[in-house]
Design a binder for these strands. Sequence first.
DNA 1: GTCTATACACAGATAGAC
DNA 2: GTCTATCTGTGTATAGAC
Lengths: 229, 229
Amino acid sequence: MKYNEFLKILSAFKEEFSRESLFENRDKIRVKKDSSVTKNLERIFDTTLVISNKKGFQAMTMRDLSREAGLSMGALYSYFSSKEVLLTMLQHHGRSITKNILERQIKIEKEPADKLITAIKIHLYLSEAMQPWFYFSYMEARNLSEQEQTRAIESELYTERIFEEILQEGEIAGVFQSGNHQLTAGIIKAMLQDWYLKRWKYAKRNISVERYAEYLTGMIEAFCLSPGN
Amino acid sequence: MKYNEFLKILSAFKEEFSRESLFENRDKIRVKKDSSVTKNLERIFDTTLVISNKKGFQAMTMRDLSREAGLSMGALYSYFSSKEVLLTMLQHHGRSITKNILERQIKIEKEPADKLITAIKIHLYLSEAMQPWFYFSYMEARNLSEQEQTRAIESELYTERIFEEILQEGEIAGVFQSGNHQLTAGIIKAMLQDWYLKRWKYAKRNISVERYAEYLTGMIEAFCLSPGN
DNA sequence: GTCTATACACAGATAGAC
DNA sequence: GTCTATCTGTGTATAGAC
C-alpha cells in the first residue's frame, strides 16, 4: 500500500469515528453544544501538541495554550477540569484511533509474511500521519498519573504482542525462522519508533516514509524469513 | 568482551579522567575547595538524574533537589548559577566520557566486522553502566538552549557516523554488502537507544545486556555481511 | 561554604459579568 | 459559552547570618 492510499483510509475512518472518538470524554466536558465541542476541542488538542512538542507539556502554561488556541483561560477550563485531565484526554484520543486502524488493517491479510509487512507499514504510516501525537505520547508518558501510565504501558506492549504473534504464527507455518520472537518484536518496535521520534533527521536526509518502510521490511525479512522463502 | 571486563575499563578510565571531567566546568563554580566540589557535585549530578528521570527535569524543583541531595538551596547555588546551567553541565559531563571511551575502544579493532561488533557492544555497555545519564540526555534534549541543542544533535550524528564509516569501510573490503549505510547506521542507533530507553521492559523480561548485544549483532550481521562471510 | 529566611514572578484555577 | 479579573500556591533565585 502507498502512503496516499492510507491517508484516504485514515480520513474516512476519522470521519466515521469522529463522534465516538472526540466524544469519548464527553461526560468530562461542561460545554453542552456539540458543535462548539468538535470545533474547539480539536483546536485545543492540536495546539497542545504543537506547544508541548516544542518545549514539553509541563513547560507549556495554560496562558500559552490560551493565547495560541485563541480561547480565554475561562473558556479552556470549560473543556477540561485540569491540565492533567487535558493530558489524559489527549492520550486516550490518539490511542483509540491507533488501535482501531491497526487492527482493522492487519485483519485483511492472511499470510504471516504479508501480515508482518502490513503491520510495519501501517504503523509507520499512522505515525507519519499523526506524528505530533505519537511523539507527544512517547515523551509525556512519565507525566501521566500512575493509572494512566499503566494504560500507556499496556498499549505499548499490546502493539509489540501483535508483532510477536505474527512471528510465532509464521514460524509454525514454516515461513519464518525460529528465534526469540519477543525480542525481535521489541526491536521492530524500536525501529518503528525511530521514525516519529527522529523525524527531523529523516526529513533532512530526504527519506520518505515509503523508503523507510521498504528498507525496514528488507532488514526484517533478511533476519526472519526461512531460507528459500 | 564481557560486561564485567568493560566495567573495569570504565572505572579505570573514570579514575584517570575524573579531574578533567568533573572540573570541566570549574570556572562556573563559585566554591573554591576542590574536595568540596568532587564530593558535592557528583552527589548533585546523581540526584538530579534520579529525580529528573522520574518526573522530568522541568518538573524537578530546586527544593526537591535540595532535599534529596542533602544540601541547602543556598549551597546548591554555589555550584551553579541557574537551573539551566546545571542542565548544561550535566550534559557536557556525560558526553565527554561517552565520546572518549567509544573512540578509545574502537581504535583497538582492525577488521571492519570486528569494529562493528565492538562499536555496538561498547555503546550498549556504556549505556548500561550510565543508563540514568543516557536516558536523561535523550529525554531532556529539547529543554536545552539553542546552542546546547546543536551540540547534542552533533553528538548524536557523530555516533551515527562512526557506524556509517565502519559499514563503508567494510563494503570496500568486501565483507559487507552494499546498501544505504547512513540509513543502516541510523537503524542501528535506534536499536542501541531502545536498550536504555526501555530498560524497565528488558529488566522485566530478564534480558541481560550481553544477551541483547548478541541478538542485535546477529541481526545486523544477517543484514550486512556479504554472503560467504 | 553552608545555612535560613525571604523576595518576586508566574503558575493553575475560578468567580462572576456579559 | 466565553470573557476579564483575581485568588492562592509554588517556582527560582538571592541576601545576609553563621
